[in-house]
Design a protein around this nucleic acid. Structure first.
Length: 112
DNA sequence: GCGTTGACTATTG
DNA sequence: TCAATAGCCAACG
């Protein structure tokens, strides 16, 4: 298989998130580039996520650093994200906030 | 190779 | 907690 590009690495990292857990763009960026500063690029990668990839990549488990849904509340993706998270047992606040202390995903070594 | 864009993060007030 | 500002990174035209 060809060398995975940035996008593929992001998708792979997102796919590694267990069900019922959520993580931030910064964590994904650290797994892919090693720098949390690339979080913008991660968001862009998911924004450009092809429809066929959306079937296999749990993009809805990716939120911003504060456990808040970065998507606009009026966006269809935001509503679907909340619905999918709720279906997995993740409680989402009316403001679109998730309790990272309970549902946040951390590395075996990266537990804060 | 350059400028623009973006589902971000950290800092400051 | 919210709002505004600066910084950083990768893909696209």
């Amino acid at each position: 298989m060809p060398a995975p590009g940035f996008f593929d690495r992001v998708y792979a990292a997102v796919g590694d998130i267990p069900a019922g857990r959520v993580t931030s763009y910064g964590e994904i960026a650290r797994h892919v580039t090693g720098r949390a500063a690339a979080a913008r690029t991660v968001g862009w990668a998911l924004n450009a996520l092809p429809a066929d990839r959306a079937e296999t990549v749990p993009w809805w488990r990716v939120i911003n650093s504060r456990g808040r849904i970065g998507l606009s509340a009026a966006t269809h993706a935001a509503a679907e994200q909340r619905a999918r998270l709720a279906a997995e047992g993740v409680e989402v606040d009316e403001a679109g906030r998730v309790d990272l202390a309970r549902f946040g995903w951390f590395d075996a070594d990266g537990q804060r």
